[in-house]
Design a protein around this nucleic acid. Structure first.
Lengths: 119, 119
DNA sequence: TTGACATATTCCTATATGGGAATATATTGA
DNA sequence: TCAATATATTCCCATATAGGAATATGTCAA
């Protein structure tokens, strides 16, 4: 079958390096017309439009029309799910490595009715 | 051409919902044999093996052989690049929205030699 | 050695997707 | 109305990849 990762999923959206480049441009919180982005990232205009479309469907950017321009702006809140997800693992690299390891091993020692690990 | 997202890139690795499920199982820091994971996530064994392979190539898990088992363990440090990247946007949703907006608008007002925005 | 078990790999197919080129659409100004 | 400009969309093609099924590989135990 096909990949389960839905294109409108924010994790899928940010998996594209080019899209992270576009996000980087928008990351100052200011608004940008498509052509401003095109100039910044050195990609073809249709590519930028497509990536912006993907980011919009994922809720990472917003767009308003203004005259003959489409003004894009970062919607950082759309990235929060990624932040919340990865934050869970933060403790693993913040000076508590040993403590975590100790706990994990203690749990391992306590384990018994259901043995998930084959030693 | 083809997608630029390299499969060994951690952003690509975590884009797959199924792989995040596997990571969720490993997230307690304990070690798991493949079959333990298969039971937990209700996926076919070959699929789990493939996903574990992808996660391993991305540096998100480690594996050691032990008897007839392959023991997998989360390597949380492999997720740090994602954390570092998304952390940049944290300020946008932590009670400083107005402050950020103010700064952005101030910058906009200061702008002049190079006009990236069409008003 | 043989069989059972654990895991990885290969083959196949359907689908998603990115880029390039061309084109369509919309807006503005003369 | 017409031309210029800004942006989106469509078409085509190459490639990546997920899942399923089958199979290969490796290890242990009798």
């Amino acid at each position: 079958m096909t990949r389960r990762a839905h294109p409108a999923d924010v994790f899928t959206a940010i998996a594209e390096p080019r899209r992270r480049e576009v996000i980087a441009v928008l990351s100052d919180g200011r608004e940008y017309a498509v052509n401003d982005i095109v100039v910044s990232v050195k990609m073809a205009q249709p590519s930028v439009s497509k990536h912006l479309g993907a980011l919009r469907r994922a809720g990472v950017v917003t767009m308003v029309r203004r005259g003959q321009h489409r003004i894009y702006r970062l919607n950082a809140a759309g990235l929060k799910p990624v932040h919340d997800w990865v934050k869970i693992f933060e403790r693993y690299w913040t000076h508590q490595i040993d403590e975590i390891k100790r706990r994990a091993e203690q749990k391992t020692a306590e384990r018994s009715p259901l043995e998930p690990i084959i030693p």
